[in-house]
Structures are given as structure tokens and as C-alpha cells.
Design a binder for these strands. Structure first.
Lengths: 343, 343
DNA sequence: ACATGAAATGTAAACGTTTACATTTCTTGT
DNA sequence: ACAAGAAATGTAAACGTTTACATTTCATGT
């Protein structure tokens, strides 16, 4: 027995072209036959085979998403935003998170050249050289998250890390703290570098000296926050406030503070970056910079769709900065901001 | 200019069949031509068009994943497990999370009949009637997460909610508590029901009475935990211990306890279910039941692949129970278990 | 040198759509 | 009743693979 569109055509006694026209609302069809075809399709529970469809139309209505990891709410938020917009536009998303650099490149190649997806959203805080080469080939619409590639025709979306870090640091300065240290993120990470720059900028503009010892490297995880804090607090000259490049490290710092019996913010003030869920539950509640992650996902998808649907490509390198905002808690020394925490 | 396989064939002066054979390692090809073809393919940066491939082979090497939501670490963990196994087997995953019932059904139909995926992993704590009908049609391999559909030919994977809840409750009982209440989950939620059953079972076996007032309904979120706790603690006869059907509600309970100035576990002991990341940071650290979420994702993918690759289908209804385990913290009254928390 | 079978290659038909172009069938004005 | 144009429908060629089957080429034993 024949299948799909052909079967419908046979039953209705028309050609497959007519059926296709009805199903896609392309071209004129007599009302009566249209109704008939629609009805039969319904009865047969017909769903077009999307592979055949994609092959013919040269588009799949799916977007590839490549993330470096699949842990913590950060990625979750991004996916959520992506999915939201995808749903609204009836698109599907193909998700991939490769642990090895090797796999990541492989997936990228498959997405760019395999015809599986119409466009790719790539989150890569650090760009491997080979990856850059692939990106330059520019076969398909591409949106980059959290990095600035410096390649024309590609859209990249970033948080305003610089501004966010600067504002947070300025807030600490306004509290009157002079000895401010920072636990930074990985050197290769774009966000981390920008945040560090923002931090430096704020200090510089306020003529505050930043000793080398006040810059300790972190790895964006709890452990490094813990050790970073420990290290800072064992300096002969201790900082009065600490800005951590992300909230995860703050968790470690809180733990360290607890084990050293240091009070936050009385002994040392702390500010973070990201505004993770947990930050609101800390005691004292964490002062941090809100990073609009869901918004980032949404924006990414919207851009991709714009490129796919309207065949639009930016002439030059095109970067969107999502504005960040300070979330005031009690950890910086502000009072009356511990109401919500309950841990 | 010709494309893909045809182009390679032209350049190498062979037929497309030979090229295909080389690329797929199917059938014998002279070593020299094989080498040549491989080299040209490499030079051209050739990637087979997967739509054409899927159309012809009638398989896509991608698995559809439908989740009810995309929030919190629970789903993240499941996806992580799924992705892990998918990567290992060179499969792609198509992710979808629909907010409306309507969309969910639509996606399911598309996945089942649209030829986009080889199989589907569906997480649906509650099964709508229409959905059941779709599942029964049984067009493609299907693995269900967190629900028992009672349909032959379908694999479902569940946590051992009953046992987990029972063990947790027994632990509370062993502490000597007699007045034990529970904040339950949504009635329609399968996990929630099972956990409640386990709770009841433990009490019954220990001949402990369970007054109606000690069962308060929750919604698996922070707020309902908060209000559930409040309600229990405003009873004329207050419980000495509370078992919450999930950890999220425990967060609310902790908050409520704090605002009521009740100490945990001295005034009221608490145990939860899920073992969320945050639980380990609570003060006192939460006693809860570990739900192996990543493992669930892995198992789901493995089952699907088994069905797809080996064309295997269970004769009857086939349910896998993932064993849960008690995680002892300080919230139940056990001492020396507050070491790790630092909030 | 030849028959025989295996190895290597080619041909062409799927797979299920979309779509440009051709053809037929309706309207409508005269 | 007919021409002209619009509306409806049909035909057939893509889209880029895989694969059953047919054909050619090669090695081997005689």
C-alpha cells in the first residue's frame, strides 16, 4: 500500500501536487477538494515525513544548540529561553553538550554541514582555534553566546559583564571599603576577563590601589571560591571586601568564612556575579549582579530565526549586550536586605 | 556544479554507489579507490546530508525528549544522563518542553509520526487521557519517565519512590518521633502518590496513628512547603517530625520554621525527598532521599537505544525501578551531620 | 588459454516530499 | 457560442542518499 501524500492522493483521486498544495496552503485548490483532502488526511492521521520535507525544502525547522556543559541553572536558563521562543515559532531544537573539545568540533561540523539544522546557537566561553576556522566558513546562521569571536557575519550575545562588574565594585566602594580584592574566573573565559576588567576599571576610576595579592584566580566553582577566600584572608593585609567573579565561588567563600568564624559583611563584605537562585537564600542574602540568562536564550533564538527566516546576516561583527543589574542583598553591608533568606 | 556524493563520484570517476559503499563501509571496494574517495571526501569537507540519509535509511539517529518543564536541576540531571549516553552512541537528541498540554500532544504526535526521531523519551508525571491513546498506538520505541502507564510494549522508568519514602519515614520513627506529618505532592503526580504510600506504609507497620490533619497537600514548590509547614505548626497538636514529598517544599518549610523561630530538628525534625544540591548546604543539612536523576536519564537512553538498535520491545508492561537511598543530614535529629553545610 | 567464482563496480529504483511548468477546466464578457 | 484569461489540476523533475540487482573485472586452478 502506498504511503503518505500518495495514499491521500489516491483515495481522493487527485494528484500528489494538489494534496501538497492543500497541506501547505500553497496555490489555489477548489474548496470542495480541499475539504475532502483535509478530511482524509485527518482520518489517516497523516503527518508529513519531515525528512522528505526537509530534503526538498532545504530546511529542517530545527535549530542546533551546543553547550559546553549541562550542569547548573545557568545552562538550564539559557535552554529555557531558547525553548520558549522555539515553541512560539514551531521550531525544534537539537541539543548537544559535548564533554571533549573533539566532540564539540565534530558536532559543530555536523550541524554546519550535515543538513540537520537551519542554524546553530553555540555557547563557548572560550574558542578553540580550530573552532574559529569552522565558524569563519560561515555556512549557516550562527549565534554565539558568551564570547566575542571577531568574525564578520556572526551574531554574538553577551552579558554586559564589564558594566555589571564595574557597578558591583562601585557599590562596594560606596560602602567605604578601600581594600577590595577579587577572586577571578578562568583566564580563558571571556566573561571572566570582562568581569575582571570592570572590576579594575571601577577601582582605577576611584583611585584605589589594587595590590597583586588581592587578585586570586578562581575556577568558577565552589572549591576555588573556598580556597580563594582562605588565601585572601591569610594575607598579612586582609581585604575588607571581596568581589567574586561568579556566585558559585561565593558559596565557597561563605563556607570558608564560616569555618574561619568571620562574619559577612561585618568582617568582610562580599559581592558576586550571576544572581543564582541560591544567592537569595544565603544568610546574609548575597549582593550580586543579575545576569539575564533566560533572556539570553530568548535573544539567541530570536536572532537565529531572524537570520533563518529573513535570510538576514549582519554585515560586520554584531554583538548584543544584555544589560546586567545589581541585586542588593546584605552581603555587601547594606542593611534591611536580609528579609527573604531563610537558610 | 553537482553536490555531495555525486560530486565525489565525478571527481573520482566512479559511481555514487561505490562512494556510498566507501563512506558507509558497506560492501567491498578496492583499496586504492577507497583511499582516493576518502581523500577527496576529506578535501571537500564532505558531510552526508542527513535528511537524505534518514529518508533512505528510515532512521534519523536522533531521539526525541519531551519534558514537562525545563526548570530546576531535576530536569537538568535527566538531560545530562540522556546526553551522556547519546554522545557515547553518536546519537542526537531533540529536546522539547511544552508548557501547554496541547503543545505536548502536538509534539508527541510529530515525534511519533513525523519521522524526526527514532524513539521518544517522555517524562510525564501525569498522563492525560489523549496522551495515553497516542502511546497505545505504539508507533515508535518509547520510554516513559516517572509514570506507570499500564500499557504493553512500553518501558517505564521510575524511582523507587515507595521504598525511599518508607525508609525515610522509618528513619524518623527510629528517632523516636511518634507524631509524624507529611506535606504531600500533587495528587495527579505519580511520584507524589507513591511517596505518600511509602509514608503511610511505614507508619502502619509501626502502628503509628496518622490523623487526617497531619496530611497537608503541597505543590512541590517552595511556597506550598512554607504554607504546609505553617499549617501543621498551627495545629492544636503539632507534629514532632515532618516528611516532605520533595526537597523544594523543605526549603519553604525551613523558611517557615525560621520565621516561627522554631529550631530544626530540636523543635521539629524534617526529612525530604530528591536530594537537591541545595539540601547539602542547608543548616542543618537536610536528611533526604537520594533520587538518582542522572542515572534515570542514562537508563532511559540505554533502553531506547536497545529498542531502536535491536528492535527489541518488551512483551508486557516493563518497569524499571531505580533504587533510592537515604542521605542523612542533621534535619532529622542525627548529630555530627552538619559538617558540610556552610550557609 | 579458459572456465569459474569472487571481488569490484555500476544502474536504477526507491525514500516522501516540494515545485516549476504544462495542461485542463472553469468564468466571464461579448 | 466563443475567446480570453483565471483557476484548478496534473506531470515530472528535483532534493541527496541507500541498496537490490546486474554487470564487469580480476584472480585462480586447470
Amino acid at each position: 500500500m502506498s504511503k503518505g501524500i500518495v495514499k491521500i492522493a489516491e483515495i481522493c483521486g487527485v494528484s500528489i501536487a494538489t494534496v501538497s498544495r492543500v497541506l501547505n496552503n500553497s496555490g489555489p485548490v477548489k474548496e470542495s477538494t480541499r475539504a475532502r483532502i483535509l478530511q482524509i488526511a485527518q482520518e489517516l492521521n497523516y503527518k508529513p515525513n519531515s525528512n522528505a520535507r526537509s530534503l526538498s525544502r532545504r530546511r529542517t525547522d530545527t535549530i542546533g544548540v551546543i553547550l559546553p556543559e549541562l550542569v547548573d541553572e545557568f545552562f538550564m536558563g539559557v535552554i529555557q529561553g531558547i525553548n520558549e521562543v522555539a515553541n512560539r515559532h514551531q521550531r525544534y531544537i537539537m541539543l548537544s553538550s559535548s564533554h571533549s573539545q573533539r566532540d564539540e568540533l565534530e558536532t559543530m561540523l555536523e550541524f554546519m554541514n550535515g543538513g540537520r539544522v537551519d542554524g546553530v546557537i553555540l555557547m563557548a566561553p572560550a574558542l578553540h582555534h580550530t573552532m574559529k576556522t569552522i565558524l569563519k566558513s560561515n555556512t549557516r546562521p550562527l549565534v554565539l553566546l558568551n564570547c566575542r569571536p571577531g568574525i564578520a557575519g556572526i551574531v554574538s550575545i553577551n552579558f554586559d559583564n564589564f558594566q555589571g562588574a564595574k557597578v558591583a565594585t562601585e557599590h562596594l566602594i560606596q560602602h567605604g571599603y578601600q581594600k577590595i580584592a577579587m577572586i577571578t574566573g578562568p583566564e580563558i573565559n571571556n566573561d571572566a576577563r570582562e568581569r575582571f576588567r570592570g572590576f579594575q576599571s571601577a577601582l582605577k576610576e576611584n583611585n584605589i590601589n589594587l595590590p597583586k595579592s588581592f587578585i586570586v584566580p578562581g575556577e568558577f566553582n565552589i572549591e576555588s571560591g573556598y580556597y580563594g577566600f582562605m588565601r585572601l584572608m591569610s594575607l598579612p593585609e586582609k581585604p575588607r571586601a571581596i568581589f567574586a567573579a561568579n556566585d558559585m565561588m561565593v558559596l565557597g567563600a561563605y563556607e570558608a568564612a564560616k569555618s574561619l568564624k568571620l562574619r559577612i559583611p561585618d568582617d568582610v563584605a562580599i559581592a558576586g556575579f550571576d544572581d543564582i537562585f541560591l544567592g537569595r537564600l544565603l544568610n546574609p542574602r548575597l549582593t550580586t549582579v543579575h545576569a539575564p540568562i533566560v533572556e539570553m536564550g530568548r535573544a539567541a533564538m530570536q536572532q537565529i530565526l531572524k537570520m533563518v527566516d529573513e535570510k538576514w546576516r549582519p554585515e560586520e561583527e554584531y554583538t548584543i549586550h544584555l544589560s546586567t543589574g545589581l541585586v542588593i542583598g546584605g552581603s555587601c553591608g547594606c542593611i534591611n536586605n536580609n528579609g527573604n533568606n531563610f537558610v
